[in-house]
Amino acid sequence: MAAGSTIDALGQFELHPMLGGLGQSLHFSQSPVMMIVASILVLAFLYVGMRPAAVVPGRLQAAAEICYDFIYNMAVDTIGPEGRAFFPFVFTLFFFILAGNYLGLLPFSFAFTSHVAVTLALALLVFVLSVIVSLKAQGAKFFAHFMPAGAPVALAPLLVPIEILSFLSRPVSLSIRLFANMVAGHVMLEMFAAFTIMLAGLGLVGDVLAVGPVVINIALMALELLVGALQAYVFAILTCIYLREAVAH
């Protein structure tokens, strides 16, 4: 947080134990708390939204159904008919990340997607799942994909390591993308908010100038709303693409 003329843009990502000593011993920080809140929100959205179970839906039910259809179509259109089996996983992934991203935008809140440990864990989950599905669906033929079809055999010593590296970089790019986006957004919000406070300390001229960063922060908040949704979408669609490659052959 900004205090006086000091900007601590990264302090917002520090984890603090919750529930006192119990939280300390269980390593229970505000990050899992927000994960639980996000999960409860997602579940409440579906349970409360679908409670009327009406043939002609109300607004909340329509919203819940649109979300369901959106992820269902994404999974089935991208993965194919096998996508139905992965639909709950993609749905969970998308809304877990989306709720995490958006919750982080609330004041005094925390974005658990801004921690690379969390995003890497999610990316590795997707990666391991896609490898398991690949091995199950294709067997040993899965390893044949590391040698591009039609390429000269002489180039194999060059191509195969590149392909393997490319394949292994998937969880890295998947996790860093989400993590970096969230960190960058929150750091920028913090920086401009700090500028406002610092400028406000410079007297009348500073008070006037301090409006600038506030306006920028409003625009940044709009950008973050877009980025939050987009990153969740990108994470989900890339998961679908990896799973399609796993089941396609």
Binding site: P17, H27, S31, M35
Partner: peptide, 24 residues
């Protein structure tokens, strides 16, 4: 706390997945 959130995240994600896939 940094590594702990991975364990907590795993548990919470699993519970959320099970509740979503089995019920919601």
């Amino acid at each position: 706390l940094v590594t702990g959130q991975v364990i907590w995240g795993g548990v919470i994600f699993l519970v959320l997945y099970l509740l979503l896939s089995r019920s919601a």
